[in-house]
């Protein structure tokens, strides 16, 4: 299987998988709270339904129309570049850690600009809060990723994964554990889950992410929610792959790649279930307590780097 074919598979996987993971998390939450909950495929069906509806567009129409495209293209590009199911190209693949980070950041910028373009109070509020949190998340994210990269002596994700698979003992090292813990907080913040943001709230005092996307409807909303689901799918599967790199295909043959895909799905579902259980057990933090959480994640990341340097 060639590199570009695998990329295409990964984009598809992240798109469908992201929607399914959203469904899984809703299901887990429902079950934990004693409800039956909607079927896991519900988000998929909803996107398909909204796609056929007309799009109402208010002020800033051209920006509102463009935002879902930017979000989908940047997230899709990140999903194509990053190795998730397999590392099949030899040598440096261009799958740099920072490319993925900054592609995702571009999606956040587009969402925030969309929020401001509507010219409503809510859009600006959401954009302001989301950008503040994203600025505070970035140090933890970059330092946490650096902690994973330094022991493998590469910032290329493909190389990192290949070397991690070859030396599985590194996964139990304190540096790795701390870095993954810090990245987990980052992923929770970036995907807007509890305790940072509540994806199902529409209360103005607590909304962060939802406030930016209030003005989308119909087809625009379908594309936008697909983009958000892809973002979630990408972040979860990337974290799962980095945490436990077992099963990542290192050759292009069909069987290992298939195994890699299946294992990737399993790891991501486990992670999503875990995050959903955290959500059930935690209340939303006050907005100005979130920086404390992110600072804690940042310190974990610094500890990860330092411990990695000390204990090597």
């Amino acid at each position: 299987m060639s590199g570009s074919l695998l990329s295409a598979v990964q984009v598809l996987l992240v798109a469908v998988g992201g929607l399914l993971l959203t469904g899984v998390m809703a299901k887990v939450r429902a079950r934990a709270e004693g409800r039956v909950g909607a079927p896991v495929t519900q988000p998929l069906r909803e996107v398909a339904k909204w796609l056929t509806r007309e799009s109402p567009r208010a002020g800033g129409a051209s920006v509102l129309a463009a935002v879902p495209y930017v979000l989908l293209v940047t997230t899709g590009l990140a999903a194509a570049v990053v190795p998730l199911a397999g590392v099949v190209t030899a040598g440096s693949s261009g799958a740099d850690v920072l490319i993925a980070v900054f592609l995702l950041l571009t999606g956040s910028l587009a969402l925030a600009l969309g929020g401001l373009a509507t010219g409503t109070a809510f859009g600006g509020m959401g954009a302001s809060r989301a950008m503040t949190l994203s600025a505070l998340t970035e140090p933890a994210l970059l330092v946490g990723l650096a902690a994973l990269a330094v022991p493998q002596r590469s910032m290329d994700l493909a190389t990192i994964l290949r070397r991690a698979v070859a030396h599985p003992a590194g996964m139990a090292s304190p540096s790795h554990v701390l870095a993954i813990a810090s990245l987990l907080v980052v992923v929770i913040a970036e995907t807007g889950r509890l305790p940072v943001d509540n994806p199902s709230t529409h209360l103005e005092l607590t909304m962060i992410h939802e406030a930016m996307v209030l003005e989308y409807g119909g087809r625009d909303w379908a594309l936008l929610s697909l983009g958000q689901a892809m973002r979630l799918g990408l972040l979860f599967s990337l974290l799962a792959t980095l945490a436990v790199p077992w099963g990542v295909a290192t050759s292009g043959a069909a069987l290992p790649v298939l195994a890699g895909v299946v294992l990737l799905g399993a790891k991501s579902v486990v992670l999503a279930t875990g995050v959903a259980l955290i959500e059930v057990r935690s209340a939303k933090l006050r907005l100005f307590r979130v920086p404390e959480l992110l600072a804690a994640a940042f310190v974990l990341a610094i500890l990860a780097v330092v411990v990695g340097v000390v204990a090597r």
Binding site: A169, A172, S173, P174, L178, E292, A296, L303, V307
Partner: peptide, 25 residues
């Protein structure tokens, strides 16, 4: 020896991590 090294690593880091967590709670 490998297991011992790993355990000492983890436990020593845990001592520090707990101290830092003390600043957070």
């Amino acid at each position: 020896s490998g297991l011992g090294d790993g355990l000492i690593d983890l436990a020593a880091v845990a001592v520090l991590a707990v101290a830092v967590a003390g600043l957070w709670r």
